[in-house]
């Protein structure tokens, strides 16, 4: 499978797919998409890259093991839930919103950060599983 065409293509595909995955993540609140799907698409982008190149090459794209995305994402999601408790003294996971919508992203609220947390966890989980399994076989 390690053909030159695929390798060349995958180098361009990776950033493209990653942008696409972020796009899916951001539009999730209004149209089909969201953190789960976005995270999976991003993971697939890396897996594709790993198929075309060597696994080591793909791993070098990360400074740390992708597994570290998991605690990071969990904390982000948790903090987005805790924020309302601290700032507004409302209950856990009550969404807060900026009054003005941002261009290109749309309305920004704590749920967006929650979804980003989900995205990071899903990427971390998927890549950890696939990298671990392919390394050992």
């Amino acid at each position: 499978m390690k053909t030159i065409i695929l390798r060349a293509a995958s180098n361009y595909m990776l950033p493209l797919l990653l942008v696409f995955s972020v796009f899916i993540l951001l539009r999730g609140h209004y149209l089909p998409g969201g953190g789960f799907v976005g995270g999976l698409v991003a993971a697939m982008a890396f897996v594709l890259h790993a198929f075309a190149n060597k696994l080591e090459t793909t791993k070098k794209l990360f400074r740390m093991h992708p597994g570290f995305l998991m605690p990071f994402g969990l904390t982000l999601a948790l903090l987005s839930g805790l924020m309302p408790m601290i700032i507004e003294e409302s209950s856990f996971l009550t969404a807060m919103w900026l009054s003005e919508a941002l261009p290109a992203i749309g309305a920004v609220g704590t749920t967006l950060f929650f979804d980003i947390g989900v995205y990071l966890v899903v990427v971390g989980v998927t890549l950890t599983i696939i990298f671990t399994i392919s390394e050992s076989s």
Binding site: L74, L93, G109, F114, V121
Partner: peptide, 26 residues
Amino acid sequence: QGKNVVNVILVDFRGADTWIEITVLT
């Protein structure tokens, strides 16, 4: 403030469940 109801349920209405779920995934 969301229009994709499935996503709104996941990240907002039942956010705590989703959080536990990603913990399980981890």
